[in-house]
């Protein structure tokens, strides 16, 4: 998959590139609006990560122009503005998702996967984790065709860990993914611990879960 990262803050752009490359994406960078428009016109991208606060133009104009060119990449808007109006405006113009700075790179990966499934109809392949099967499409976890009844939040948590498998996720990253970040002040590591405990308990009724690891002092990891 080809990704264009339009972000004027070079060091942030570089980090995104490092992370997405490790995820198997092909990345290109643009640091100005003009540069971005030119690249979009010439190349075909699957994803455009678009910072709204560009020095030479309003990022939203790039979506407008692009619609005129007729290509159809998925736009994910990155902004520190966080204003409701911007969000509505962005989604109206055809942006596919919206992520507020500062965000976790693992969150970006999860969003890109979700957008990809929705937009390019990439079939969400069921995934085998230990003795369990995770069905992304129907949001189910099964063990020998028996469904493990997880709450919406519990499934989201497990899903996020599985998408970012073999990476340690901090409690804050997990918390942000599930509760968004309007309640930052209430960030409470206990929340995640309780939910993980419940997920483990429910899964352990069917089989043991050595793949769901607690990484001391950091957070949790799904490894397989």
């Amino acid at each position: 998959m080809n990704v264009l990262i339009v972000e004027d803050e070079k060091s942030l752009s570089d980090e995104i590139v490092v992370f997405l490359k490790s995820e198997g994406y092909l990345c290109e960078q643009a640091f100005t609006g003009a540069d971005a428009s030119e690249k979009i016109a010439i190349n075909l991208y699957d994803f455009v990560l678009l910072d709204l606060g560009l020095p030479d133009c309003d990022g939203l104009d790039i979506i407008n122009n692009d619609r005129a060119w007729g290509s159809e990449p998925a736009f994910i808007i990155i902004t520190a503005r966080g204003e409701v109006q911007d969000k509505v405006k962005g989604l109206d113009l055809g942006a596919d998702d919206y992520i507020a700075k500062p965000f976790a790179l693992t969150e970006l990966a999860a969003r890109m996967q979700a957008v990809g499934r929705r937009k390019f109809k990439i079939p969400g392949q069921d995934m085998n984790v230990g003795e369990f099967v995770i069905e992304f499409q129907s949001r189910k976890v099964t063990h020998n065709d028996n469904e493990v009844l997880l709450t919406r939040k519990e499934f989201d948590l497990l899903n996020y860990l599985v998408i970012n498998r073999n990476k340690v996720l901090t409690r804050q990253q997990l918390y942000e993914h599930i509760w968004g970040n309007i309640l930052e002040d209430q960030y409470d590591s206990n929340f995640i611990d309780v939910h993980i405990k419940n997920v483990r308990r429910k899964l352990n009724e069917f089989a043991s879960t050595p793949w769901l690891e607690t990484v001391r002092g950091i957070g949790y990891r799904v490894s397989f």
Partner: peptide
């Protein structure tokens, strides 16, 4: 408000990404 949010949150964002990339 808009300017401060942009100015403050962008460096935080950079730091976060660098640290998270290190962590993995």
């Amino acid at each position: 408000t808009v300017n401060i949010s942009h100015e403050l949150l962008t460096p935080v964002s950079v730091l976060r990404s660098k640290l998270e990339n290190l962590l993995i």
